[in-house]
Design a protein around this nucleic acid. Structure first.
Ligand SMILES: [Mn+2]
Ligand SMILES: [Mn+2]
Ligand SMILES: [Zn+2]
Ligand SMILES: [Zn+2]
Lengths: 153, 153
DNA sequence: GACATATTGAAAATCTTTTTCATTAATAAT
DNA sequence: ATTATTAATGAAAAAGATTTTCAATATGTC
């Protein structure tokens, strides 16, 4: 099958090539999910991805979304992000490195972008322990500006 | 109700006092869950906690485990730890607070040494966001040396 | 175009967690 | 100790998220 989008996204192209290289078929459902993920600038839940991707492939089933997410995760083109409410979100690997800053009072959650210096922290630990560190999760807890004032008052 | 365990654990005592202070009842089901959590030296899933706590309170329902976990989390006596497979584990705050290195295959948990440079990481974020960062949780996930070999083989 | 089969979607199954609600038991008052 | 109050409990049902099953379909190849 040919690409389903006339206007081509270089990120999408790259993944499509990778899929083909590995012998996977370039189906319309897959392409629709991929397109959504690669044009998004944040984390999306499977349900959201499903809704958006249906605009490109109206017959798309949620099951296929899950299957595609799992495949793209394996290939490390997207990454799964933990959510407080139990389920998961997915984002392009470049974006998925966000960390959380949580206010212990109002429970506000701020995402802050990935830290490049994270590896200066992790590398020595990997070396010492012999672990192959594949992922990390950093969560900061404290008081947001608003709640700091509430406490002072 | 009086305490259900003749041999008393100081950690359990402390939480019981706190519960009483806040007007909660010291029920047998609650005490059994608490006991399990405070005598454990690692993370436990609700199902595991349920199984263990039943030895102290045979009628204990899984629902009550969830309710107690949520209460103790609110009170910050235990902390919820994210798991790769979607569900959550819980551990005493002291245990859950440190930095952990978790093997995604054998689930081994190693506590890893010295992160003095944590503040070089956190300070800029605090400055940018205006948050007062009081606590942090860092979890590294990967493969332990043993499980790396298993994969290679 | 025909073929082989990887992929799909619907439905059912699983699994974790939450809600509902009638019953039970902890605490405080008598 | 007995009783009254009502927070807390457990069973069952519901809610969600994700996975499995399987017959039908669409893709890449010849
Ligand atoms: Mn990260
Ligand atoms: Mn999680
Ligand atoms: Zn706040
Ligand atoms: Zn291991």
């Amino acid at each position: 099958m040919k690409k389903i989008f006339n206007m081509s996204n270089p990120k999408v192209e790259r993944v499509l090539a990778d899929l083909k290289r590995l012998g996977y078929r370039l189906t319309r459902p897959r392409q629709s999910v991929l397109q959504v993920l690669m044009e998004a600038d944040g984390c999306l839940r499977p349900e959201e991805i499903h809704a958006r991707a249906r605009r490109y492939c109206s017959t798309l089933g949620l099951v296929t979304v899950y299957r595609t997410l799992s495949l793209l995760s394996e290939m490390d083109h997207i990454r799964r992000v933990h959510r407080e409410d139990g389920c998961h979100s997915y984002a392009r690997t470049e974006l998925a490195h966000g960390h959380h800053l949580i206010c212990r009072d109002c429970h506000q959650v701020i995402e802050f972008p990935g830290l490049d210096n994270m590896s200066t922290l992790i590398d020595p630990i990997a070396r010492e322990t012999g672990f192959l560190v594949e992922d990390h999760m950093l969560e900061l807890v404290g008081l947001c500006p608003v709640c700091q004032e509430k406490v002072e008052a």
